[in-house]
């Protein structure tokens, strides 16, 4: 059977290639996978894991970490106090159906047809200040604080980071979507599972956060224009043809996830 029996253009990426692609992404855009407050980002010793990146990243002044504001301490405003932290995403593995690269937790197993599974580690730490540091923070009189609350600078307290790692499993599928006026392949999250967190409500809350983060990252940062997926095949942009995703029938799933690959099909109409 030919690749183009029912279409004019066909493109497929095997999961091995997709995993190498993720590695390149992590090396060239590390700030998409590493988040921390400025003090942690600036100090390698505080990172949960050392970060690999290409020479071009520092050469072109790209950040290793996305720097975020300190985590506010609740109930504290005279002055406000913020804690340092670090969150790093690592060891990504992508598995297109059938599931044969890593095992899934029972909640997500078996992987449905036309679905992908993603596995990664979320490692993080909250900087825990010792009592001595906290005692050195002056207490401001409430009156002063009420008159000019906006002028009270937050106190960013240092602390010791104790890193933990969570194993995260995501399952999802791909859809076509118009994003920024371009036909794109968009990953959609169908389920998230974090192993070994109790109580269940805490697990659900963290899973909800991760589901939201993955969904929005896929939508905002990793939606792949069809032309890119087809490695800028020259028919894209050629004025004499119209390219449209092949419909069902004859192609039941477009994009399709099968045989360990993500596939897309295009039909061409000559003007």
């Amino acid at each position: 059977m030919a690749f183009t029996d029912h279409c004019d253009l066909y493109a497929a990426v095997h999961e091995e290639g997709a995993n190498r692609l993720i590695q390149h992404l992590m090396l060239q855009r590390p700030s998409m996978f590493n988040y921390a407050t400025a003090d942690v980002a600036a100090n390698k010793e505080l990172w949960c894991e050392q970060v690999k990146f290409t020479d071009d990243v520092p050469k072109y002044g790209n950040p290793i970490f996305t720097v975020l504001p300190p985590l506010p301490v609740i109930g504290v405003d005279s002055p406000p106090v913020g804690l340092s932290y670090c969150v790093q995403l690592q060891k990504f593995e992508l598995d297109f159906h059938p599931n044969n690269i890593f095992g899934l937790p029972p909640e997500l197993d078996p992987l449905k047809e036309q679905h992908f599974a993603l596995h990664f580690l979320v490692c993080g730490a909250l900087a825990c200040p010792d009592d001595r540091v906290l005692e050195q923070i002056p207490v401001l009189p409430p009156e002063t604080n009420k008159e000019r609350p906006e002028k009270v600078p937050p106190v960013h307290v240092p602390g010791k980071l104790q890193c933990f790692c969570l194993r995260v499993f995501v399952v999802g599928h791909f859809e076509r979507a118009f994003i920024l006026s371009k036909e794109t392949l968009l990953g959609k999250v169908d389920g998230v599972e974090i192993v070994d967190i109790k109580p269940g409500e805490l697990e659900n809350s963290i899973e909800c956060y991760i589901r939201t983060a993955v969904t929005m990252t896929l939508r905002q940062k990793l939606a792949i224009p069809l032309a890119t997926f087809f490695v800028s095949f020259p028919l894209f942009g050629m004025g004499t043809v119209i390219l449209t995703p092949t419909t069902n029938p004859p192609i039941p799933n477009n994009p399709a996830i099968e045989e360990d690959q993500l596939k897309a099909f295009i039909t061409m109409t000559v003007i």
Binding site: L9, Y10, A11, G17, V231, M238, M268
Partner: peptide, 20 residues
Amino acid sequence: MNHVTIAASEKAFEQLFKAV
């Protein structure tokens, strides 16, 4: 198996040839 596969039908190939 190769990581990336791209295929163009004979009809699509004809369009490429026309451009050339």
